[in-house]
Measured scan of single mutants.
Amino acid sequence: GATAVSEWTEYKTADGKTYYYNNRTEESTWEKPQELK
């Protein structure tokens, strides 16, 4: 299949934890999204 550009962006909180934000759905998660595995 075609490689889609991930909708997920990786961010870090002030205390250094990583989370992921989906630009399309406006969803955020602590877990690494399936698309990034």
Rank of each mutant, 00 (worst) to 15 (best):
G1D: 12
G1M: 14
G1H: 13
G1N: 12
G1P: 13
G1W: 08
G1R: 13
A2T: 12
A2M: 10
A2W: 05
A2C: 15
A2N: 12
T3W: 04
T3F: 09
T3I: 14
T3K: 12
T3G: 14
T3P: 13
A4S: 12
A4P: 12
A4W: 06
A4I: 13
A4R: 10
V5R: 10
V5I: 11
V5A: 14
V5S: 12
V5Y: 12
V5P: 12
V5W: 11
V5F: 13
S6W: 08
S6Q: 11
S6E: 12
S6M: 08
S6I: 08
S6G: 12
E7L: 05
E7G: 09
E7V: 07
E7S: 05
E7C: 07
E7A: 07
E7P: 06
W8G: 01
W8D: 00
W8Y: 02
W8M: 00
W8F: 02
W8V: 01
W8N: 01
W8P: 00
T9I: 14
T9E: 11
T9K: 10
T9N: 08
T9R: 09
E10N: 00
E10V: 08
E10G: 00
E10L: 04
E10M: 05
E10R: 03
E10D: 02
Y11I: 14
Y11H: 15
Y11S: 05
Y11E: 07
Y11V: 14
K12W: 06
K12F: 10
K12D: 03
K12L: 12
K12Y: 09
K12M: 11
K12P: 03
T13H: 03
T13G: 07
T13K: 03
T13M: 05
T13E: 03
T13W: 01
T13R: 03
A14N: 08
A14E: 10
A14Q: 09
A14D: 09
A14P: 13
A14W: 06
D15H: 04
D15P: 00
D15I: 02
D15C: 13
D15A: 07
D15W: 06
D15L: 04
D15K: 03
D15Q: 04
D15G: 06
G16H: 02
G16D: 05
K17S: 06
K17T: 09
K17H: 09
K17V: 08
K17Q: 09
T18D: 04
T18Y: 10
T18V: 11
T18W: 06
T18F: 12
T18Q: 04
T18R: 05
T18A: 08
T18E: 08
Y19S: 02
Y19T: 02
Y19E: 04
Y19D: 03
Y19C: 15
Y20K: 00
Y20F: 06
Y20N: 00
Y20L: 00
Y20A: 00
Y20P: 03
Y21V: 12
Y21K: 08
Y21T: 04
Y21G: 02
Y21P: 03
Y21M: 03
N22H: 02
N22P: 02
N22I: 00
N22K: 00
N22G: 00
N23E: 14
N23I: 14
N23G: 06
N23R: 08
N23P: 08
N23T: 14
N23Q: 13
R24V: 15
R24F: 15
R24D: 08
R24N: 10
R24Y: 14
R24Q: 11
R24G: 06
R24T: 11
T25D: 01
T25N: 02
T25S: 04
T25P: 01
E26C: 15
E27S: 04
E27Y: 03
E27T: 05
E27L: 05
E27A: 04
E27V: 08
S28I: 15
S28N: 08
S28T: 15
S28R: 15
S28F: 15
S28E: 10
S28M: 15
T29Y: 07
T29W: 05
T29M: 09
T29N: 04
T29V: 14
W30H: 07
W30I: 07
W30N: 08
W30L: 08
W30G: 05
W30A: 07
W30T: 10
E31T: 07
E31V: 10
E31K: 05
E31I: 10
E31S: 05
K32N: 06
K32D: 05
K32A: 08
K32Y: 07
K32H: 04
K32Q: 09
P33S: 01
P33D: 02
P33V: 01
P33A: 01
Q34T: 12
Q34S: 13
Q34F: 12
E35I: 05
E35P: 05
E35C: 15
E35M: 06
L36A: 09
L36N: 07
L36R: 06
L36S: 06
L36G: 08
L36Q: 07
L36F: 09
L36Y: 10
K37S: 14
K37H: 15
K37W: 12
K37C: 15
K37I: 15
K37E: 14
K37V: 15
